[in-house]
Design a protein around this nucleic acid. Structure first.
Length: 440
RNA sequence: GGCGGCGUAGCCAAGUGGUCUAAGGCGACGGUUUGCAAAACCGUUAUUCCUCGGUUCAAAUCCGGGCGCCGCCUCCA
């Protein structure tokens, strides 16, 4: 399959390091606030890539981190008067709960930054020893970007362009304004860990370097995340890891476009966001999945209530098909649809096109719900299990038999009464052409 | 100031040189079915792709100018 690689700015044929194994590191959340639709977009795309690679026969080792210590968390800890760990757990749990509802497959590993302090310290040590990092008088350790030749290769930045930037406030202790903290000296009232440079805590980017290579080795196959991470986060990860070990860090960089609201980026810092848990109160998780996959993952997408609503209607159609597939045990799948689907998925994960094909197939081949359902499962769609039981099925059969007898006798008042009463119990009754269907 | 992206029907969205008089979804309209409700089903809905110019036998697709919008360069998925 082909994937767009931010590093080369080209769509490239994907070749894993090992023949049948793929290592993926998904840059997870800094657990400082509620997970929102923007995060979920990235994680859903990661989930679909993973599922597709698995469908293609690869064994995928998927790692997704939680960065559970950083400036914002400390800030929040002070303003809330809570412990930093509580904040981290709160939002980690909220994410995991939403992810589970959304049928996002669990990562093989969910490392947290603070579990890897030793590995981080080792990495910082190597960088100091090799001369890529320096210790300042106030005991901060910074990475010296001027020492790393490839700095800027991911984001296309050049060191001398920074002067124009005007947004960076140079720290007097930094040799170069682009230099970034590997280790931050402890301040009163903040959490800390012991290190060769005194009490302190890791800088922002270092934890991802330490955790990704810990699980996946170096180099590894795919590193993913939102587009806002390209610079400085991913750029800095490359610098640290490649400087430390003298070899390539990651082969393919996959970045997901933003979720926007009225054309503006959805983000925690602007307060402009929709928490995923709030959306899931109103919408089926599959609707959210379809919503995201209807747009190519690299383009920015605008969140509108209207679009989510229209997606909800579209999902009903797919859900119906998946339900039908459940009943008809036809096992021959349509090879043509499958190869169309694969063709589009292979083309840099063109989910909108793949889904479009599924829709038209459903229309043209109502007799085969099986192939579409099979492919929708590959994309991670999973309709709600109807909470039915054999006994209930039998009871409903009896009730509907009686009700249809009443209808045949034109005793509509009684028939409608039964329908209304069932409705109150949450059972919806639909009279079809020659069959009455019901759903819980 | 530097770098990157985008502009396709009422809305969303694929397509990046010929099979495009442009997929697919939502909506709207018309119809079939129906005791009613809901659903389902069928049909219609862009001769045109922000704009101007160029290249080409051929462009939504390539090149140049213009207009508009967004992101990154600061914490961010």
């Amino acid at each position: 399959m082909k994937l767009y690689n931010t590093l080369t700015r080209k769509v490239e044929e994907f070749k894993p390091i090992k023949r049948d194994k793929v290592g993926i590191y998904m840059c997870g959340m800094t657990v400082q606030d509620r997970p929102h639709l923007g995060h979920i977009r990235s994680f859903l795309v990661g989930d679909v890539l993973r599922r597709y690679l698995e469908y293609r026969g690869y064994h995928v080792d998927y790692v997704q981190n939680f960065t559970d210590i950083d400036d914002k968390i400390i800030e929040k800890m002070h303003s809330e008067g809570t412990d930093w760990r509580d904040i981290g757990h709160r939002y980690t749990d909220e994410y995991l709960s939403a992810a589970s509802k959304l049928n996002i497959k669990k990562a093989n590993h969910f490392p947290r930054a603070t579990q890897f302090i030793q590995e981080i310290i080792e990495l910082v040590n190597i960088l100091l020893e090799k001369g890529y990092a320096y210790l300042t008088p106030s005991k901060n350790v910074y990475f010296d970007v001027s020492k790393f030749e490839g700095y800027g290769k991911l984001s296309g930045k050049k060191l001398d362009e920074l002067k124009e930037g005007a947004r960076v406030e140079p720290d007097p202790e930094k040799k170069n304004p682009f230099d970034f903290a590997l280790w931050k000296q402890h301040k009163e009232g903040e959490p800390y860990w012991y290190s060769p440079w005194g009490k302190g805590r890791p800088g922002w980017h270092i934890e991802c370097s330490a955790m990704s290579t810990h699980f996946l080795g170096q180099p590894f196959d795919i590193h993913m995340g939102g587009q806002d991470l390209i610079f400085p986060h991913h750029e800095d990860e490359i610098a640290q890891s490649e400087a430390a070990y003298g070899k390539k860090f990651v082969n393919y960089w996959v970045h997901i476009g933003f979720m926007q609201i009225k054309g503006e980026k959805m983000s925690k810092s602007t307060g402009l966001f929709f928490a995923i848990e709030d959306i899931l109160k109103e919408y089926d998780p599959n609707t959210v999945r379809l919503f995201v996959l209807q747009k190519h993952y690299r383009s920015p997408m605008d969140y509108t209530e209207e679009f989510l609503k229209s997606t909800e209607e579209a999902w009903k159609k797919l859900e119906n098909t998946m339900h039908k597939a459940h009943f008809y045990q036809n096992t021959t799948l349509n090879a043509e649809l499958i190869s169309e689907f694969e063709k589009h998925m292979d083309e840099d994960l063109n989910t909108p096109k793949a889904i479009g094909k599924i829709f038209s197939y459903i229309k043209e081949h109502p007799e085969d719900p099986h192939t579409p359902a099979f492919l929708l499962k590959v994309l991670g769609f999973e309709p709600k299990e109807s909470k039915t039981s054999e006994k209930l099925d039998k009871i409903m059969e009896v009730i509907l038999k009686v009700r249809n007898a009443l209808r045949r006798d034109k005793q509509f008042a009684y028939a409608d009464m039964i329908r209304n009463e069932l409705n109150k119990l949450g059972i919806k009754v639909k009279d079809g052409r020659d069959k009455t269907e019901w759903t819980l």
